[in-house]
Simulated scan of single mutants.
Amino acid sequence: MTETPKTELRKGWTTGACATAATKAALQQLWGGAFPKEVQITLPRGETPSFPLAWSQAGEGWAEVGITKDAGDDPDVTHGALMIARVRASNGGVIFKAGEGVGTVTKEGLPIPVGEPSINPVPRQMMTQVVEEQAEAFGQPADVEITVSIPDGAEIAKKTWNPRLGIEGGLSILGTTGIVRPFSCAAWIASIHRGIDVARADGLTHVAGCTGATSERIVQCLHGLPDHAMLDMGDFLGGMLKYMSKHPVERLTIGGGIGKITKAAQGAIDLHSSRSQVDFKALAALADMPKVAEANTALEASKIAPQLPELVATKASQEIRARFGGAMQNLDIVVIDRSGEILARAEG
């Protein structure tokens, strides 16, 4: 059983907020001649956090500042990474460039065009606003080139969805509020949505969502799917299905272990162990074998009733189709054990 934290979890700041703060501090040196000790910015919802400078440097016609990302109590892979913004004069408004460790968009379907640095719209708006404010304060034209860099960003990006989404060379500068909420599911679900967008934009007719690495490997091999057809569903079945019901792809495969697929068969759309449980009495009724109700796990239940994987796969397919309608008619359920063996399939 998951314990409730005794104290409030500490929030953190997005890569977009850190890059914005770095941009503001660098502009103050470029136009004012001195770096501040710390810099305050205004986030989209009105919060005004301050950031200490972790790195500062200037040269002829340019200045750069680094801000260390603090993700609070969220297990964010970018926690502790240095977000560096270098600013220099440009000839046409605010121009964004990807420095070391910041990715470049190579596939359609993302909110940023192909060929552009992977700096999302809200961080771009935040940095542009900072440029305009500082330009007015120092009597300068708001024509600035901003190059954002993240040392080790390319290596950190391997732990994210960026390679699969067609973002090459590093991390993305993200955030819609500027705030990282501890243990929020929003970022994961947003990545699933972007994966669907990329697949649709690339004309893919078949995508797959799996609960873990083993099931993903087996499903990808089974259907010969490219990497960007594999959606990082994890436990967020509902987050994937709700979005796909409005942004359909012709065929969907869902792969997972007997426990997770059993939950889906019983109507759960959040498959995390703390938010849904297997109903063993219902499983016994499905198998028409009362002894199944005594099982401790779905895997144990399937050993008592070997027909269960097929029954669960079929029931999960029926449950999802009934709940999410016509967009899920071409649905394929694959039940996989821990060794990677396919236990059952229900093909639409």
Rank of each mutant, 00 (worst) to 15 (best):
M1A: 14
T7L: 09
E8P: 03
T14D: 11
A17F: 09
C18I: 10
A22C: 10
A26W: 12
Q28D: 12
Q29L: 06
A34P: 09
P49T: 00
L53D: 10
A54T: 07
W55N: 05
Q57I: 02
A58L: 05
G59H: 02
G61V: 01
A63K: 05
V65D: 11
K69N: 11
K69Y: 11
G72H: 14
D73V: 14
D74K: 12
G80M: 07
L82R: 14
L82T: 07
R86I: 03
V87C: 15
V87P: 13
S90C: 08
G93K: 02
V94E: 09
V94T: 13
I95K: 12
V102T: 01
T106Y: 00
L110P: 05
P111L: 07
P111G: 02
P111I: 01
G115K: 05
E116L: 01
E116K: 14
P123N: 06
R124W: 04
R124D: 06
R124I: 02
V130L: 11
V131C: 07
E132M: 09
F138N: 11
G139E: 11
Q140N: 04
D143P: 10
V144Y: 09
V144G: 05
E145D: 12
T147P: 07
S149Q: 09
I150K: 10
G153D: 01
E155N: 02
E155I: 09
R164V: 15
G166R: 07
E168F: 01
E168N: 12
E168H: 10
G170D: 03
L171A: 04
G175T: 04
R181M: 09
A186P: 00
W188Q: 08
I189G: 02
S191M: 02
H193G: 03
I196A: 09
V207H: 00
T214P: 06
R217T: 10
C221Y: 14
C221L: 14
H228M: 00
H228L: 05
A229R: 04
D232R: 14
M240Q: 14
K242T: 15
M244E: 01
S245F: 01
S245D: 10
P248Q: 00
G255H: 06
G255N: 01
G259W: 00
G259A: 15
K263V: 08
K263C: 08
A264H: 05
G267D: 06
I269M: 01
V278K: 04
D279Y: 14
F280S: 05
K281M: 07
L286S: 04
L286W: 06
P290Y: 06
T297R: 07
K303V: 02
A305C: 10
L308R: 00
A313S: 13
E319L: 00
R321Q: 15
A322T: 03
A322P: 00
R323A: 02
G325Y: 03
G325E: 02
A327M: 04
A327G: 06
L331E: 14
L331Y: 10
L331C: 10
D332M: 04
D332I: 00
I342C: 03
L343C: 09
E347D: 12
E347Q: 15
